[in-house]
């Protein structure tokens, strides 16, 4: 059975203000969904809520991942179950090198999924601290860095510190590649990128997409969809999905803008 993401009647508020108002969506492994919408429609709220940011309060509804109640888990358990969020604004963590961080994260996720043999530990580490062997980790990391065109020196740099916008987004995709999730949410991964960076990032995502990965691509603009063709396109407006369709819906939006949707669904607002 696939690890599908199922969202039913999701209502979310932030600091008492309702943002999502009855959102329904299903993303299956192997599918690419584009979620489009104007600023303030609730796109990032959905992303953060799905990942479990404590600031977002679920008032009603349910979210299941592979049939399990995602809302009962903290962010770390959600990641271990196979959910991934590529941040719109990746956070800087000074003093923590990308390599150290990723080794711990990959190990935590693989431990939880039973993919890391405890006996590999050696040096008396407790089962909660078992890390993927350094040599194997380095091999995997360097291979994926090369595939994404990321210089090796980034492994030794502090997480996101001094990275350009494009570098940060590429590092998000690198993390996605290393953590091998079932469902990945990409929150405006295309924003703030010049055309070359956009192409690199989009190609990275395309390479990772496949029968094992479901993608929810959140975007304001259509341009990333020139590189990645989604199976489904949804339009989010005032906290609800008001239109769903195939890739042609994105083209319509590009041509007509969001006003067209707004007028059509004036009753919602």
């Amino acid at each position: 059975m696939g690890t599908d993401l199922v969202i039913r009647d999701l209502h979310v508020s932030v600091e008492g203000k309702p943002i999502l108002r009855g959102l329904n969506l299903e993303v299956k492994q192997g599918e690419i969904h584009a979620l489009m919408g104007p600023n303030g429609s609730g796109k990032s709220t959905l992303a953060y809520t799905l990942m479990g940011h404590p600031k977002y309060h679920v008032d009603r509804g349910e979210v299941l991942l592979g049939g399990e109640n995602l809302l009962a888990m903290d962010a770390s358990a959600r990641a271990q179950k196979g959910l991934f969020l590529a941040f719109q604004y990746p956070v800087t963590v000074p003093g923590v090198t990308l390599a150290n961080f990723l080794r711990s994260a990959v190990s935590a996720v693989r431990r939880a999924r039973g993919q890391l043999a405890v006996e590999a530990a050696g040096d008396g580490a407790s089962p909660q601290e078992v890390l993927i062997p350094m040599r194997q980790f380095r091999r995997e990391l360097l291979e994926r860095m090369r595939a994404l065109g990321i210089e090796e020196e980034f492994a030794r740099r502090y997480l996101n510190e001094g990275f350009s916008g494009g570098e940060k987004k590429r590092i998000e995709i690198l993390q996605l590649a290393m953590l091998e999730p079932k469902i990945a949410i990409l929150d405006e991964t295309d924003s703030g990128l010049d055309i070359d960076a956009l192409r690199t990032v989009a190609e990275g995502i395309k390479r990772l997409a496949g029968p094992e990965l479901g993608v929810l691509l959140i975007t304001h603009y259509q341009r990333i969809l020139n590189y990645i063709t989604p199976h489904y396109v949804h339009v989010l407006l005032d906290g609800q999905i008001v239109e769903s369709g195939g890739p042609e819906l994105a083209t319509t939006l590009e041509a007509k803008g969001y006003d067209w949707v707004r007028e059509k669904h004036a009753s919602v607002a």
């Binding site: 903290d74 959600r78 991934f84 963590v93 923590v96 961080f101 990959v106 953590l179």
Partner: peptide, 25 residues
């Protein structure tokens, strides 16, 4: 920072430890 690290699968405790070690590092 905590949420970011936890969203990658680190437990709250591991994430905190990493932030503190990084702070001093």
């Amino acid at each position: 920072q905590l949420f970011y690290l936890m969203s990658r699968g680190l437990s709250a405790q591991e994430a905190q430890r990493m932030i503190v070690e990084g702070f001093l590092e």
